[in-house]
Design a protein around this nucleic acid. Structure first.
Length: 568
RNA sequence: UGGGCGAUCGUCUAAUGGUAGGACAGUGCCCUUUGGAGGCACUUGUCUAGGUUCGAAUCCUAGUCGCCCAGCCA
């Protein structure tokens, strides 16, 4: 159930086959008067990423639309990979995205019931204990094109199977020595039906059940039944599980339990983004990024630290919908929804990332003025603030060119521009260092243009942001770019790996930025638009004496586009 | 060479036998005290070949291409 967010635009929800199916089932009373019940079933073996956000929006969002409920269920049947740290982060991320689960469940809550059901199948002659090694099981399974062969242990008596399974459970056998398998069909064209393993022996401590068990159910023997136990009506999962659906149904039918329905949809893929838990883990473990919440990571914690908002993520997910087509969504779409959200909500401020000193020669020395600036032109309710001005201000190095290229509207010798909300100024001369770099620009201002107005109707082609030298606060600015240089990070040459597609310039740290004084009061979670530059948020690395801002996204920059075109 | 699933603008996604539409990206113009935002316009698509039908993206047949499956992972 979402906290539908009023200030987020009604994220045009696209029709999709999942919603259609649900509507049809509700109308046909497929489950009688029972409510729509869904679940979000992550395995706690890693951090959630943007791909999970799509699944979360589908699981929670759709149930909510039909007045149903959603459980958060940890699919924790493999104690060797799962940890409490991941459970905690997943709960944090789901809540942050704006969803509230009905019940908090764990597959491990059902270990007792699952064991009873395994016993039931053994007694019915539908399951048997196999002594084959893992290697032998693989050989007996056959291949994609050849049928498998029956295990020599397949026809053990019910009594023998019962005895053996009991002893498996009581810990008499070492890991890997035996498994419990369903007796289905070794010649099935669907490999999942070739006597799938139901239980394996694992003398491992489980993050919740400790050492209570030394046998653990496989995904296939746990997921459908867990859905059934929770009366899940629509069990949405990704496409790669489609081949498992016959088995999902087989267990439910053999056991005669609530018939949950599995429905598959396409996984999210994004350009320039890796969404594989294994590879993300590798990036973290090898120190290629600073951690799971590195702002360049596609994890929800990384995205959050970067400054992305749950509202934007939800709008993005609503817009991409769901289908059964494998595709790759342009990262631009995500960025569009984030800019759209931030444009409407972010407080504006002026910050100069790469300062260039601008001296206003005819402005009285020692004089100060306060100019009133709107906090957000998109939102009058955001009010205004006072920004101090004085004789020496900083402007962006990019905003001055001694020799302006064509179509360059910013400051250059002899040109007049507006300092936002302050005055019109005209550049006169420059000071250079020994290397010939411009280090100081001298200009004159027009007192009649106070407030940035043009009393005589005179136009300037450009408005620059600025920060008063005497009042500036310093900050570290972290500029993030794509983590990978290729749209498909997995497109690498022979003998290389996805690591060779890592973008060496994905992080640029600026230490000399000058900010308007109001930014000294920024709090964690505040979001700003640094005018003409981009969207920024305070990073948690900030300390009392040191501000650190993350760039969430740059603003769309049509000058950069002109420059690029001219250059190519 | 088995089985499952899929194929609609560059990308993602609608149209459920009846005008192929939207979003992102792109291009041009307008507007602008953010070269931001906004507005207007434009461009581009039903995998192929047959068939059914008054009418097909949709139904049928045959191809082609793509993804997934041979963990005691999920």
């Amino acid at each position: 159930m979402t906290n539908s967010n009023p200030e987020s635009q009604e994220a045009r929800t696209v029709s999709n086959f999942l919603r259609d199916q649900m509507a049809e089932d509700v109308l046909a009373k497929k489950y009688g008067d029972a409510i729509v019940q869904t679940r979000f079933p992550p395995e706690p073996n890693g951090y959630l990423h943007i791909g999970h956000a799509k699944a979360i929006c589908i699981d929670f969002g759709l149930a909510d639309e039909f007045g149903g409920r959603t459980n958060l269920r940890f699919d924790d049947t493999n104690p060797e990979k799962e940890e409490q740290e991941y459970v905690d982060s997943i709960m944090t991320d789901v809540r942050w995205l704006g969803f509230k689960w009905d019940r908090l469940c764990y597959a491990s809550d059902y270990f007792g019931q699952l064991y009873e059901w395994a016993l039931q199948l053994v007694k019915a002659g539908k399951a048997y204990v196999d002594d084959l090694t893992a290697d032998e099981i693989r050989q007996y399974r056959g291949t994609l094109t050849e049928p498998g062969k029956d295990s020599p242990y397949r026809n053990r008596s019910v009594e023998e199977n019962l005895g053996l399974f009991l002893r498996m459970k009581s810990g008499e056998f070492p890991d890997g020595s035996r498994v419990l398998r369903a007796k289905i069909d070794m010649t099935s064209p669907n490999l999942n039906m070739r006597d799938p393993v139901m239980y394996r022996i694992l003398h491992a401590s489980h993050h919740r059940t400790g050492d209570d068990w030394c046998i653990y159910p496989m995904y296939d023997f746990a997921h459908g039944q867990s859905d059934s136990i929770e009366n899940v009506t629509h069990s949405m999962c990704t496409l790669e599980f489609a081949d498992h659906q016959p088995l999902y149904r087989w267990y439910i039918e053999q056991l005669g339990i609530f018939p949950s329905q599995q429905i598959e949809f396409d996984r999210l893929n994004l350009t320039y983004t890796l969404l594989s838990k294994r590879k993300l883990l590798q990036l973290v473990q090898e120190g290629r990024v600073s951690g799971w919440d590195d702002p360049r990571m596609p994890t929800l914690s990384g995205i959050r630290r970067r400054g992305f908002t749950p509202e934007a993520l939800r709008a993005f997910c609503a817009s991409i919908g769901a289908s059964r087509t494998n595709g790759t969504t342009d990262i631009e779409v995500l960025e569009h929804f984030q800019r759209d959200d931030l444009n409407r909500r972010a407080t504006r401020a002026m910050a100069v990332l790469n300062p260039l000193k601008l001296v206003i020669d005819n402005y009285p020395e020692g004089q100060e003025e306060l100019f009133e600036v709107v906090n957000n032109p998109e939102d009058p309710a955001a009010g205004v603030r006072q920004v101090p001005f004085s004789r020496i201000v900083y402007i962006e190095q990019d905003d001055f060119r001694e020799v302006p290229p064509p179509k360059y509207f910013r400051l250059s010798p002899g040109k007049e521009v507006r300092l936002r909300a302050a005055y019109f100024i005209t550049a006169n001369s420059v000071l250079k260092d020994a290397d010939g770099n411009v280090v100081e620009v001298h200009c004159t201002y027009d007192p009649a243009s106070r407030g940035g107005n043009s009393p005589d109707g005179r136009k300037v082609k450009s408005t620059l942001h600025w920060v008063s030298d005497a009042h500036a606060v310093s900050a570290e600015i972290r500029l993030y770019d794509k983590l990978f240089t290729k749209a498909d990070p997995n497109d690498y040459a022979e003998g290389e790996s996805f690591l060779s597609n890592l973008n060496p310039d994905s992080l640029t740290v600026l230490t000399g930025a000058k900010l308007e004084p109001s930014l000294a009061n920024a709090k964690l979670g505040d979001r700003f638009q640094f005018e003409r530059v981009g969207y920024f948020c305070l990073d948690r690395d900030s300390t009392e004496g040191k501000l650190v801002f993350n760039r969430t996204l740059s603003l769309k920059d049509s000058w950069a586009k002109i420059e690029k075109k001219a250059g190519s």
